[in-house]
Simulated scan of single mutants.
Amino acid sequence: MIKALVEGAKKTDLVLEDPLPFVLVKSLDDFYVNYELNVYTKNPDQSAKIYSSLHENIKNELHAAGIEILSPHYQAVRDGNVLTVPPENIPDGYVQPGFKFENNR
Results as ranks from 00 to 15, higher is better:
25 V>T: 13
57 N>A: 01
76 A>M: 05
15 V>K: 01
2 I>K: 12
64 A>C: 07
34 N>A: 12
70 L>R: 14
57 N>P: 03
56 E>W: 01
69 I>D: 10
100 K>Q: 11
26 K>I: 13
41 T>S: 03
84 T>H: 12
60 N>L: 07
65 A>L: 05
64 A>E: 13
99 F>Y: 15
86 P>G: 05
42 K>S: 12
90 I>D: 13
51 Y>Q: 04
45 D>C: 00
66 G>I: 11
29 D>H: 02
18 D>W: 07
105 R>P: 06
53 S>M: 11
63 H>Y: 15
50 I>L: 08
36 E>A: 12
49 K>R: 12
34 N>Q: 12
99 F>T: 02
30 D>E: 13
12 T>P: 08
82 V>C: 04
105 R>W: 11
10 K>F: 07
20 L>M: 08
57 N>I: 00
37 L>R: 09
2 I>R: 15
20 L>D: 13
65 A>S: 15
37 L>G: 13
103 N>I: 08
52 S>A: 11
91 P>F: 08
38 N>E: 07
14 L>H: 10
38 N>K: 14
20 L>C: 04
75 Q>A: 03
104 N>Y: 07
25 V>M: 02
90 I>G: 11
14 L>I: 00
80 G>D: 09
16 L>N: 10
60 N>A: 14
59 K>G: 01
97 P>R: 03
40 Y>G: 03
46 Q>L: 10
87 P>F: 04
10 K>Y: 12
88 E>P: 02
101 F>T: 06
10 K>A: 11
88 E>G: 03
32 Y>M: 11
78 R>W: 03
91 P>L: 05
58 I>T: 05
57 N>T: 00
33 V>C: 08
90 I>H: 13
97 P>W: 05
75 Q>R: 04
96 Q>T: 14
83 L>R: 08
65 A>D: 13
45 D>L: 02
54 L>W: 04
32 Y>V: 00
45 D>P: 01
14 L>P: 00
23 V>L: 07
26 K>Y: 08
55 H>L: 06
99 F>V: 00
78 R>S: 05
88 E>I: 01
97 P>V: 00
29 D>I: 08
95 V>G: 02
54 L>I: 00
42 K>T: 14
39 V>A: 05
80 G>F: 12
70 L>A: 06
72 P>M: 05
92 D>P: 07
27 S>A: 15
73 H>T: 03
17 E>D: 15
66 G>M: 10
31 F>H: 08
93 G>M: 01
7 E>K: 14
43 N>S: 15
73 H>K: 01
95 V>Y: 04
24 L>C: 06
57 N>R: 01
11 K>D: 14
34 N>S: 13
54 L>F: 04
52 S>D: 15
64 A>M: 04
46 Q>H: 06
12 T>F: 05
60 N>Y: 05
3 K>Q: 09
34 N>V: 09
86 P>D: 09
23 V>W: 10
33 V>L: 06
9 A>M: 09
81 N>Y: 06
70 L>M: 06
26 K>P: 03
29 D>F: 02
56 E>I: 02
39 V>S: 03
14 L>S: 11
46 Q>M: 06
56 E>H: 07
66 G>R: 14
33 V>R: 10
68 E>M: 06
103 N>Q: 07
12 T>M: 04
3 K>C: 00
72 P>C: 03
53 S>H: 10
33 V>S: 04
57 N>K: 03
88 E>F: 07
77 V>R: 11
85 V>L: 00
76 A>D: 08
74 Y>Q: 01
98 G>C: 11
32 Y>S: 15
